[in-house]
C-alpha cells in the first residue's frame, strides 16, 4: 500500500540546507500496525508528515496504491489526504468553538457528504471510540483522553486506508495512554492500518512492527513477536 523509495528531505535553513531524512526506504502493507520510534529530532515526525500526505516537498518516490504522490498537484494531494488518511495529533487539534460532532464530521464535510448522513456516521464512530452521546459536547469540557478519542473518531470517520498517529499519548497520563493504545489495537484488529510515532518504548511495544529512526536514517525494522496481550 505505502511504498517509499529513497526519500530524502531537507530544510532550507539560513544559508545552507539542513537534511532531516536520508534515503528512506519503507513499505507498509494493508492491515499492519507499525510503530516508528526515535528520539526527538530524529526526523520521525517529518517522515510521518510525508507518509500522511501533509508534506509534499521531498525528494524520492512515494507510491501509494499505484498513485505517485509526489506528482500530485496540491488539490489532488488534499483530496488524497481527505479520503485515504486519518491523522491523530499529540495535542488533539480540535476546533474549540465547534462541538464534538462537528469536529468529527469535518472530513466528511469536505468530502461532500450530506449533513444528515454525516450525523448518522459521526454518532456511529463516537460509539466506536466509547463516546456515546457526546455529539453536542464542546471539546473544552472533555478530558484529555476523551479529546484524543474525539480526534481518533475524526481520523477514522471517513474510513481511510490508514491511520497516522503522531505521539498520540504524548499529552496523556499513563492510564489514559493505555486506554488509547487499547483503542488503536482494537481498530487494528478490525482491519485498520496504523502507523504510530512515539518515543515511548511501552507504547511502541504494543505494535506489531517496529521501525527505529536515528538522525534521519532507518536503523532497524523488525516484527514484534513478544506480544503480551
Amino acid at each position: 500500500m505505502i511504498n517509499l523509495t529513497s526519500v530524502n528531505k531537507s530544510y532550507r535553513q539560513g544559508n545552507g540546507d539542513y537534511q532531516v531524512l536520508y534515503d528512506i526506504n519503507l513499505k507498509v502493507k494493508s492491515g499492519e500496525f507499525v510503530a516508528v520510534m526515535g528520539p526527538s529530532g530524529s526526523g520521525k515526525s517529518t517522515l510521518i508528515d510525508i507518509i500522511g500526505f501533509l508534506d509534499q516537498d521531498f525528494e524520492g518516490s512515494y507510491i501509494f496504491n499505484e498513485t505517485v504522490v509526489s506528482d500530485l498537484n496540491r488539490r489532488d494531494h488534499a483530496k488524497l489526504r481527505n479520503r485515504s488518511v486519518g491523522f491523530v495529533f499529540q495535542n488533539f487539534k480540535l476546533i474549540n468553538n465547534q462541538n464534538v460532532g462537528e469536529n468529527v464530521g469535518l472530513p466528511l464535510l469536505y468530502a461532500g457528504v450530506k449533513r444528515h448522513d454525516i450525523h448518522v456516521r459521526v454518532n456511529k464512530v463516537l460509539d466506536q471510540v466509547g463516546l456515546t452521546d457526546s455529539y453536542y459536547k464542546m471539546p473544552k469540557n472533555l478530558s484529555g483522553g476523551q479529546q484524543q478519542r474525539v480526534a481518533i473518531a475524526r481520523a477514522i470517520v471517513a474510513k481511510p486506508s490508514f491511520l497516522v498517529a503522531d505521539e498520540p499519548t504524548g499529552a496523556l497520563d499513563s492510564a489514559t495512554s493505555k486506554e488509547i493504545i487499547k483503542l488503536f489495537k482494537d481498530l487494528n484488529q478490525n482491519g485498520t492500518t496504523i502507523i504510530l510515532v512515539t518515543h515511548d518504548e511501552k507504547v511502541a511495544s504494543q505494535a506489531r512492527r517496529l521501525v527505529k529512526i536515528l538522525d534521519g536514517r532507518i536503523q532497524s525494522d523488525e516484527e514484534i513477536t513478544n506480544e503480551d496481550l
Binding site: R74, F87, L94, L106, Y110, A158
Partner: peptide, 16 residues
C-alpha cells in the same frame, strides 16, 4: 491559523 491547519489536515483544499 490552527483551525485552518486542522481543516487542511482533514482534507480541505486551498480553494475551500
Amino acid at each position: 491559523t490552527q483551525e485552518i491547519g486542522i481543516r487542511m489536515a482533514v482534507g480541505a483544499t486551498q480553494r475551500q
